[in-house]
Simulated scan of single mutants.
Amino acid sequence: MGYDVEITRNPLFSRKKGPQITLDEWFAIIRADKELKFFVGEHADKYGVDTAIWSAHPDPESESRYLWGAGGVITAKYPDNHLMAKMVRIARRLDADVVGDNGEIYELDNDGALIVLDDHGVSSSEFHAGFMGKNALIFGVGHNKGKDFLDRIYRDTSKMTGQHAYLEIETYKVNTMWWKVVYYAWYQGFITAINENRKADGFPIITYKGEGNFFDEDMIFFRNYFDKKPDASFFRAVNALIEFRKSKLGFYDEF
């Protein structure tokens, strides 16, 4: 799927919490910026135009010149530092943030150089310099609420209508699988941490009984759980799944 960087106001990641970036806003940026040009692809007659090419990239042959608007964000795939710096300048005009796949926020320092901020609004080097010795909790997606899980993975695409609906739906489908993997990896990491501690203490590790497509089954469990408890955290849902598997399907060892 590659590494995507977005200009976004998504309240989960952005410091500039607000509504989604509309195509009208994106088109206004393109029209007002002499360095941006509408990119008309071969399917533009059917799906419209939502992509811009940055004509002022230092390397005119670089593939890292394209930005497209869909799903309430403006996205670049595998952007280099030149394009990300341009994205920061665009984001400032939209009162938005430039955010990477892992939630990192990109900014420009006083000299115009690209830097990475953490969720405290300071550069990573500043944050990590003062991190050792301090008590801190790193939650990851385990801290996300169920309504975020449902929105990222089970959004009703029938509500996506209009000229650019096809592109929005296709983008959402790609992001959906990515987020399934992210959430499930957190769940597996949680089980792994428990097993590492049990092994160190001399206890048998937790394993499932039987065979089956646990990924799909577990994702259905999470969906049903959050349909009933949308404000619960993913951490709570994982604990509920562990209890369910212990009581209904069984572990080789008691948890």
Rank of each mutant, 00 (worst) to 15 (best):
K228P: 03
G41D: 12
I206A: 12
N197H: 10
G41Q: 09
E6C: 13
G130M: 14
D231E: 04
K17W: 11
T8N: 13
N175F: 08
K228A: 13
E25T: 01
W54R: 01
F214C: 06
D45S: 09
G212D: 11
P19I: 02
A232S: 11
I74L: 13
I194G: 01
K199W: 01
D109P: 00
T157G: 13
F27P: 05
G72Q: 11
A129G: 15
D59S: 12
G2D: 06
Y252C: 10
R9I: 04
D59E: 13
A76N: 02
W54M: 01
K199S: 13
M160I: 05
E170Y: 13
I220Q: 09
Y184P: 00
S64A: 05
F39S: 06
R152Q: 07
G121F: 03
A136H: 15
W54V: 00
G162W: 00
L23D: 12
K209A: 10
K209T: 12
T157L: 04
I29T: 14
N195W: 01
A44W: 07
G162F: 01
A28G: 15
D201G: 05
S158N: 12
E168T: 01
S62N: 06
R155A: 15
T161V: 09
S158Q: 09
A56F: 02
V116W: 02
G18D: 02
I90S: 01
P11I: 04
D24F: 06
Y172C: 11
F251Q: 08
D24E: 14
A200K: 12
F215P: 10
D216Q: 15
A76S: 14
I105D: 07
S14V: 10
A28K: 15
P19K: 11
K86F: 03
M84R: 00
K228Y: 02
L249N: 06
I138K: 10
D231S: 08
I30A: 12
H57Q: 05
W54L: 00
A52S: 12
W178Q: 08
A91K: 02
T192C: 09
S123K: 03
I242K: 04
W68T: 03
K147S: 05
G130E: 15
L150C: 00
S14P: 11
R89N: 09
D216I: 10
I74D: 08
H120M: 08
A76E: 02
M84C: 05
